[in-house]
Design a protein around this nucleic acid. Structure first.
Length: 70
DNA sequence: GTTCTAACA
DNA sequence: TGTTAGCA
């Protein structure tokens, strides 16, 4: 994998994702169980999230916040 | 230190 | 949804 590729396909652990999305690991896992996100679970025990998933979390987060307002 | 699962309220 | 317990 090239250096450029790592910049475009970084994989973060749930801890980083929770900070980036401002969500809790519970919500992230729950959404994952609902099939709303598709993280890369290589070992099956640890799931790494890519920008793709983080982006989806932000969309979902917005929906949750909108749900409160409406 | 970090992640995962399970269950309960 | 949030927390706790134990495990690797």
């Amino acid at each position: 994998m090239n250096d450029e590729m790592r910049r475009n396909m970084p994989l973060f652990p749930i801890g980083t994702v929770t900070k980036l999305t401002a969500l809790t690991p519970r919500q992230v896992r729950y959404l994952e169980q609902q099939g709303l996100i598709q993280p890369e679970c290589t070992n099956g025990d640890q799931c790494l999230f890519s920008f793709n998933d983080v982006k989806r979390l932000f969309e979902i987060k917005s929906l949750i916040e909108n749900r409160k307002s409406n």
